[in-house]
């Protein structure tokens, strides 16, 4: 057997070959007894070595300092994975979105309302996506919304079918907020429905709704402090909600609290 053929057997054994190359090897194995034997030897050797290495490491007593360092590293990396760059990857921001403010994201615990849970170290991806969408679409008064006026009701039906759960634009007229537009966005987390509201002073607010993944825990009502914007998010078993608005405008927290009670 040539050396090249042996190398191919190694790659085949380790799952490094594509389907076509694997098929070629398998065809050869059917007719080449020497290659079959070689592959069996390689597989047995790899298994034994894996088992031997596993046995020596697992027999070592647990080292407390290692365990402590392991936990510290988990903490450091978890913070790294937290949303300091929350919407840099959002599709509509690629190639020009101004996201510098996101770097200054500060999460804080908000305990003004007894039922509000302490702030988690990171915010869910859907909140980051909602923030990106809010900055790009809701605050831009020139760019038209995808649906306006009476078309929003029809849009809500379409959104519901795309998201896989019933979504609609809640009535916020009690807060003197007017629904001015809606759009559906594709994100890496799935479709996201965005409803845009305007207050009496013309400040823009957005409520985004996404399908709540079954395998994720329900987020209680929580607030995060982005620069110049207030963000509150919560989950129901079907929908993840994010409400975003100006800090100095109508209280996003109050509105979110009312909406969460309704949902």
């Amino acid at each position: 057997m040539t050396r090249g053929a042996t190398l191919d057997l190694n790659a085949y054994l380790d799952g490094e070959l594509g389907p076509e190359e694997s098929a070629e090897i398998e065809a050869r194995l059917e007719t080449d007894a020497e290659a079959r034997e070689r592959l069996e030897t390689l597989a047995r050797q790899k298994d034994r070595l894996g088992a031997a290495l596993a046995a020596i490491a697992d027999s070592a007593p647990a080292d407390l300092r290692t365990a402590r360092l392991e936990r510290q590293l988990a903490g450091a990396l978890h913070r790294r994975m937290s949303p300091r760059r929350p919407f840099a990857a959002a599709p509509w921001l690629r190639g020009g979105g101004r996201v510098a403010a996101a770097a200054a994201l500060v999460a804080f615990g908000w305990v003004a309302h007894g039922s509000w849970a302490p702030q988690a170290p990171g915010v869910p991806e859907y909140v980051s996506e909602a923030m990106g969408a809010h900055q790009v679409f809701a605050e831009d008064l020139v760019r038209p919304a995808e649906f306006t006026g009476g078309a929003i009701d029809t849009a809500a039906e379409w959104f519901s079918s795309k998201i896989g759960a019933q979504v609609n634009a809640p009535d916020l007229s009690g807060f003197d907020m007017t629904l001015v537009g809606a759009r559906l966005l594709g994100t890496k987390e799935g479709p996201l429905a965005q409803f845009i509201y305007e207050d009496a002073g013309g400040a823009r607010y957005s409520l985004t709704l996404a399908r709540h993944p079954e395998d994720r825990p329900l987020a209680p009502l929580q607030a995060v402090d982005y620069p110049d914007r207030a963000v509150v998010y919560w989950s129901t078993p079907d929908i993840d909600f994010t409400l975003i608005g100006k800090k100095d405008g109508m209280s996003v927290r109050t509105m979110a609290s009312t909406l969460a009670e309704r949902t």
């Binding site: 290495l53 596993a54 020596i56 490491a57 697992d58 070592a60 290692t66 392991e70 936990r71 590293l73 988990a74 903490g75 990396l77 978890h78 994975m81 170290p121 990171g122 825990p217």
Partner: peptide, 22 residues
Amino acid sequence: DGRAELERRLNDYVRSLRRYAL
């Protein structure tokens, strides 16, 4: 949650690192 999942993964990696270090 994310932190628990990260700790579990790291624990696996550390075991592999220990084997390699040996």
